[in-house]
């Protein structure tokens, strides 16, 4: 037996993303943000996208390119503090933004990837983040119903991948990537190093390849992945 080969050309994988798609994008700041897949999505030009991403990166980086190109109509996120452009788009009404508590966004995505319908959480009760949310009582305590999140496509950045799509991350580039890699109908991963089957030790796999549909090796690690000089 041999595990199937899922290697692909980035442009071909990204070309499957249609107008109006919901797209999860890994990353927290620069680490773990799939900069090359994002550039390919800008080139591809799909519009009316709903993005699910922890943050909006910084001006000139990551999903800021998609925001600047006017391809995003809705953003489900936790914090935009480092991107004034995103805040301006939100304030002008050009971008609809749904804010989540950060760990709740993570759990909603994990629930989506785990085949669950929602999670129950007491985070934000008594604040405006609870407005409009269904409340249920469990063992005498109130909880908010937080629906699971899934996407049409997830864009993932890994440090290492094998040809079956087993993925390994490094340092704080892990963040939302392993969660999103389980929660989309089509999962596209870019990897800094693509290795043959067997070269990524089974014990080192963070995301099992069964969750991944397409994997591509990055030919260059552009400056956008580098240390940010602020």
């Amino acid at each position: 037996m041999k595990l199937p080969d899922k290697t692909c050309r980035i442009e071909e994988a990204i070309a499957r993303i249609g107008d109006g798609a919901t797209v999860m994008v890994g990353g927290f700041g620069v680490p773990g943000t799939p900069m090359t897949l994002i550039h390919a999505l800008v080139e591809h030009g799909a519009r009316g996208l709903t993005l699910i991403k922890n943050d909006a990166n910084e001006p000139g980086m990551g999903i800021d390119h998609l925001l600047q190109a006017g391809q995003v109509s809705r953003l489900i996120t936790t914090h935009l503090g480092l991107n004034g452009t995103a805040i301006a788009l939100m304030n002008s009404g050009a971008l609809e933004v749904e804010f989540n508590a950060q760990g709740i966004l993570a759990e909603r995505i994990r629930a989506g990837g785990a085949g669950l319908g929602a999670i129950l959480s007491d985070i934000g009760i008594g604040t405006e983040l609870a407005l409009g949310k269904q409340v249920v009582e469990m063992e005498g305590k109130p909880y908010l119903v937080e629906p699971a999140l899934r996407a049409d496509v997830a864009l993932i950045h890994a440090d290492r991948a094998d040809t079956f799509g087993n993925l390994a991350y490094v340092a704080t580039a892990q963040n939302f990537n392993p969660l999103m890699a389980m929660a989309a109908t089509c999962v596209i991963a870019e990897a800094e190093r693509l290795v043959p089957l067997g070269a990524l030790d089974a014990n080192d796999v963070h995301t099992p390849g069964v969750f991944v549909d397409h994997v591509a090796e990055l030919s260059t690690i552009s400056g956008e992945y580098g240390v940010v000089q602020r």
Partner: peptide, 22 residues
């Protein structure tokens, strides 16, 4: 690839652990 939640570049110490957002 190693920042804190404020985006500052930090280091590890002996015994550090890294994990996902969940």
């Amino acid at each position: 690839n190693l920042i804190d939640a404020g985006g500052a570049y930090v280091s590890l110490v002996p015994g550090s652990a890294v994990f996902d957002s969940a």
